[in-house]
């Protein structure tokens, strides 16, 4: 089964390496991993899709929590959440197929973001299932290039992870030392 995990971490050089190194070292099977800024400056947010059973997911959460720069980890698999992925797909076109491709895109509420004589780029946003099925439809036309972001997730309303507010004193301590440094996080 697939588990969706969200982790917050101090935005420091090498933190992605710390996390991905731990996952590789412990032989965990990760389907996708996505990193971005969070609402808090200085804190990054990672979304993981873990393939395995409950015990594996539990171990991934616990081992992530042991990474010192990781500030919080939540398993949101059971929560009501908005799960999305963005894909950019360059599809080969001929004058005969272009209309059909654009129809498919429209059905999936995907956008055409680039058009050339020989191809066009479809931008699809949705759950992985939806993106998968659009890709299946487009494949016969010839997919020349493709990029997918992997899953990002945000819980709905009251389902938000109950994450403690980040203490700020570490940044204050550093800031008081070097004048600006990591910056004030408040």
């Amino acid at each position: 089964m697939q588990y969706t995990l969200v982790a917050w971490m101090r935005d420091k050089p090498g933190v992605l390496n710390r996390v991905s190194g731990m996952l590789r070292r412990r032989n965990f099977n990760i389907d996708s991993l996505q990193v971005s800024h969070s609402e808090t400056p200085g804190i990054s947010r990672m979304t993981f899709v873990v393939d395995g059973d409950e015990r594996v997911a539990d171990q991934v959460v616990k081992q992530l929590r042991k990474v010192v720069d990781v500030t919080a980890v939540e398993d949101i698999t059971e929560r009501l959440a908005i799960l999305r992925e963005l894909a950019l797909i360059r599809v080969r076109t001929t004058p005969a197929t272009r209309g059909e491709i654009m129809q498919f895109a429209e059905i999936y509420r995907a956008q055409i973001v680039d058009v050339n004589a020989e191809n066009l780029v479809v931008q699809a946003v949705g759950t992985e299932d939806k993106v998968d099925s659009l890709i299946d439809l487009l494949r016969p036309f010839g997919i020349e290039e493709m990029v997918r972001t992997g899953r990002v997730a945000l819980c709905r309303g009251d389902e938000r992870p109950k994450r403690k507010k980040q203490p700020t004193s570490i940044f204050k301590a550093a800031a008081s030392l070097n004048g600006s440094g990591h910056g004030d996080q408040e």
């Binding site: 050089p13 090498g14 390496n17 710390r18 190194g21 731990m22 070292r25 010192v68 720069d69 301590a173 550093a174 030392l177 070097n178 004048g179 440094g181």
Partner: peptide
């Protein structure tokens, strides 16, 4: 060294700024 030792450490640091050293 930070990369090499990472899997065998609880944590590690590379210090490139003297302001960070005491912390």
């Amino acid at each position: 060294v930070v990369g090499v030792s990472q899997p065998v450490c609880k944590h590690n640091y590379l210090v490139t700024d003297i302001a960070e050293l005491p912390l």
